[in-house]
Structures are given as C-alpha cells and as structure tokens.
C-alpha cells in the first residue's frame, strides 16, 4: 500500500516535470499543457467505468459482496475523475476556442452523457433498501452502463463534425517528447486511481472492523445512528446488524 502510494507520487511528479520542462511548448501555446491533465483524467475515468462493469459481472457470477464494493468504489472514483476531466475540458475549450462549452466537440459531449448516466448510480442505490437487492441492481446498472459507453461514443461521433485535437489518431504524429511525457502522466494518473480506490476500500473495511469490534467488546454500545438507507455496499458496511 505504502509502496503503491510512493510509486504514484513519484510517477505523477515525474510525468508533470516531463510535461512542463521536457515536452516542447506547442503552437497552441502554454494552454496545451492541460492536455497532460485532461486526457489522462478522462481515459482513467473511462477505464475505471469499464473496470466497474467487470467487477459487477464477477459480483453477479460469484455472489461475493466484495466485488460489489469494488464496483461501487470504482464508479465513485471514476465519477470524481470524470468531474475533473469535464472541468479541465471546459478550461481547455475556453483557452483554445474561447468558449466554456463546445457542442460540436464529440468527445467532450460523449463524456458528459456518460457522466450524467453514471451520476444516476447514486440515486439508484439510495432508492433500494434491501442490501442484497441493492448490490445486485447496482451491478446490473454497472454492466448496462458499461455496454452503453462505446455505443454512446459511436453515436455522438457519427453525429458531429470532428474538431477535437485528435489524441489517438494523431498520437503517431505527436513529437516523441510529448508522447513520452503524456504516457508517464497517463501511467501516474492510472496509479493514482488505483491508490485512491485501494484507500477507500481499506478505509471502509477498517471502519467496518472497528464497528464490529466495538459491538463485540461492548454489547451496550450503540453506534452513532447509522442512516436507515445507505449506498455503501454491504461488503464494506458498518451498518450491518446494528443493534437498535
């Protein structure tokens, strides 16, 4: 855990050092440096959504609440990263095109739609009280939304003219210094996602353990009133078996 955190910090620092001091300043000017933040955030968020779908499949196949917890934390973290990607995207659009939002930009629009869909994951979990059912339905949602992501990119891209700085199709044309810096930034952002997901899972497991120990040591212990409904998956929960 500690090694992972240190590796993340080192890779991120190295990536942004490369981005600022090694990669050349492009014709667009300094604003283009946001590319090293925006694009990795977006890619990592999308990969995170895909990972959540894979965890959800495993949850349904093995009926193990630990996978539901992983799926939940993966979506949670990817929504946070996605917020970052949308905000940096708006900043970049302002810098490059002079507007905060650009509807003709298919990648940004696709990303917004995906983000809106994943935001409904929280009300979905809140609306179902039964823990097992909540977990199963959340997994069904994660799988459905996972299938939705590529379809949505296809539909939005077909509908709009192409004005985005093409990250992938032009990656071969990217100066090697920029590509190297970008890849290190992407790796660092991926590691950051993994680290934060691990931290959140461990924090939830630890508070569940503390709750269990307290209950075991002190039968009269009343936990600080847990919410009647919660979106936190049972695999990491504290509210289970709470004395009333």
């Amino acid at each position: 855990m500690r090694t992972l955190a240190i590796a993340t910090a080192v890779t991120l620092l190295a990536g942004y050092a490369l981005a600022f001091f090694y990669a050349p300043v492009e014709a667009e000017g300094f604003i283009q440096k946001i590319f090293y933040l925006h694009v990795p955030l977006a890619i990592v968020a999308l990969v995170g959504f895909a990972a959540a779908a894979v965890y959800a499949i495993q949850h349904l196949r093995r009926d193990d609440p630990a996978y539901d917890a992983k799926s939940y934390v993966a979506i949670h973290m990817s929504v946070i990263f996605g917020t970052g990607a949308l905000l940096t995207g708006a900043l970049w659009a302002k810098g490059q095109w002079g507007v905060w939002w650009e509807w003709r930009e298919p990648t940004l629009v696709s990303f917004l739609i995906i983000f809106l869909l994943y935001c409904t994951y929280y009300p979905l979990r809140y609306a179902i009280e039964d823990r097992d059912r909540q977990a199963r339905y959340a997994s069904v949602f994660a799988i459905t939304a996972g299938a939705f992501v590529p379809l949505n990119f296809l539909a939005v891209r077909l509908a709009e003219p192409f004005i985005h700085p093409r990250t992938f199709s032009s990656a071969g044309g990217l100066p090697p210094e920029m590509l190297q810096a970008f890849l290190v930034c992407l790796l660092g952002m991926g590691l950051l996602w993994v680290t934060l997901v691990r931290f959140e899972l461990e924090a939830k497991a630890a508070s569940a353990d503390i709750g269990r120990l307290r209950r075991a040591l002190d039968p009269g212990y009343a936990e600080p009133a847990p919410p009647r409904r919660t979106v936190v998956p049972a695999g990491v929960s504290t509210a289970e078996g709470t004395p009333r």
């Binding site: 869909l117 409904t120 009300p123 609306a127 339905y137 069904v140 949602f141 939705f148 539909a155 509908a159």
Partner: peptide
C-alpha cells in the same frame, strides 16, 4: 429496477433518459 425501488416514478426517467441518448441521436 425502478419498480423494485422506493422511488419508482423518479428513477425510471432519471436512468433511462441518459441511457437513451444514443438512440435519440440516431
């Protein structure tokens, strides 16, 4: 999913509308 939840009429459009955006586009 929505029928089994406590927010039936709210949840169905909330999840379904973003899910149907590619279909609307096409």
């Amino acid at each position: 999913i929505a029928t089994m939840s406590s927010a039936r009429d709210l949840l169905a459009p909330l999840i379904l509308l973003p899910l149907l955006i590619p279909l609307v586009i096409a």
